[in-house]
Nucleic acid binder design. Structure first.
Length: 385
DNA sequence: AACCTCGACAACCGCAGCCGC
DNA sequence: CGCGGCTGCGGTTGTCGAGGT
């Protein structure tokens, strides 16, 4: 494993460690302690630099290192801590006995990060990557006929900061037009090809938008949908409050009938959920105040009709919480406070459920519930992965 | 069977912070 | 206070091996 031995530098060996070297290092440290890493290799008779010795000891030879597969609990903890700490691998490792920062980092990059990306979650910010959504697909497949519903959605999910305002304007414009079209159809009892019309309208509206931009004239659409108006008013969200067993809220249509959005956030300001595009992992958290009762007043996008189309809004973990707990979901932070879905709530969100899972599929499956944000199949984001 | 692709992971590299002089 | 050495951290690289074609 690792790199092949490369040329010596100052007579010092590099590359993978041999069993003999390992034994020398272990013996020396057991007898003398590591002391000064710089002088250790010389004293131990190793043709290695101190840095290499330290790394080998810290990441591989240390007796308290736990080898082997990460348990689901560990995986949970990593995700939780990363959502709070970002890439502070050493700090995360301090919370995971027997695991090294390097090991956690590698595991994150090779497993968790990819899984998050697959689910449409930005592994840096832990927020949905709605900037990657193919809004055209949404339009074409959506039965939504209300632009306000999209506004509710965007405000609720805080995507206005992620979506190009012009594109959002175009979307809402189109949805409004589509609504009018449908009303006209109902009146006339005509059933034209909506898809074709939608596509044609898209092109038409694009031209309109371009012309409007060129002329710097605001028509009814652009003036109606200024970016700063994309945020969802609290009352709008409260209007869509439903129980987990009630009928889908109006904007569920936006999800093509396969998804329901359940929200119960009267007491939580949805604008707080807006994530920053800033790549700093904790910035949005620093700027966001999640009510302590967010657990109860959480935003749900439920799984429905057998689809795995779930949205998730993560609340801010309580940094004072004991991350070593075996029962994250009873705690008031992180994914434990994340909004569950009706389907997931029917299945106990107990970390032990999959504790013995040994396959990636099972982990993926459980993470789908845990992370609760998957990009619908209709949203083609594979090209971004 | 040969080749290719990709996941996994050990190890390296560069930088920043700490600390002693 | 400035400088230099040491340590630790995070990002990245390079190789191996398994699976697919």
């Amino acid at each position: 494993m690792g790199r092949a031995p490369c040329c010596d530098k100052n007579g010092l060996k590099k590359g993978p460690w041999t069993a003999e070297e390992d034994q020398i290092l272990i013996d020396y440290i057991q007898k003398h302690g590591h002391g000064s890493w710089r002088t250790l290799p010389k004293n131990a008779g190793l043709q290695r630099c101190g840095k290499s010795c330290r790394l080998r000891w810290a990441n591989y030879l240390r007796p308290d290192i736990k080898r082997g597969r990460f348990s689901f609990e560990e995986e949970e903890t990593i995700i939780q801590l990363h959502s709070v700490l970002g890439n502070k691998w050493s700090t995360i490792a301090a919370r995971l006995p027997g695991r090294t920062d390097n090991e956690i980092k590698n595991y994150w990059n090779t497993h968790i990060r990819k899984r998050l990306l697959k689910m449409g979650i930005d592994p840096v910010t832990h927020t949905p990557r709605l900037d990657l959504l193919d809004l055209g697909s949404i339009l074409r497949s959506s039965l939504c006929n209300s632009s306000n519903q999209l506004m509710n959605m965007s405000g609720l999910l805080g995507i206005q900061s992620l979506v190009n305002p012009d594109l959002m304007r175009l979307v809402t414009t189109l949805l409004s037009s589509q609504q009018q079209q449908q009303q006209q159809q109902q009146q006339r009892e005509i059933k034209p090809d909506l898809l074709l019309q939608t596509l044609q309208q898209t092109q038409l509206l694009k031209h309109q938008n371009q012309n409007q931009n060129q002329n710097q004239n605001q028509n009814q659409f652009s003036s109606s949908f200024q970016p700063n108006q994309l945020q969802c008013p609290i009352q709008d969200i409260s209007a869509c409050t439903t129980s987990s067993t009630s009928s889908p809220p109006p904007y569920a249509q936006f999800l093509n009938g396969t998804q329901q959005l359940q929200c119960n956030v009267e007491q939580s300001n949805p604008t707080n959920l807006i994530s920053s595009q800033n790549s700093q992992p904790n910035l949005w958290q620093d700027n966001v105040v999640i009510p302590s009762n967010f657990m109860e007043n959480s935003v749900h996008l439920s799984q429905n009709h057998g689809c795995h189309d779930q949205f998730f809004v993560n609340s801010l973990p309580d940094q004072n919480s004991n991350f070593q707990s075996n029962d994250y979901f009873n705690q008031d932070f992180g994914f434990g406070s994340v909004l569950s879905t009706p389907s997931s709530s029917q299945t106990p969100l107990n970390s032990s459920t999959y504790m013995n899972s040994s396959t990636e599929d099972e982990r993926d499956s459980y993470c789908s519930d845990l992370l609760t944000f998957e990009i619908p199949d209709m949203l083609d984001i594979n090209g971004f992965m």
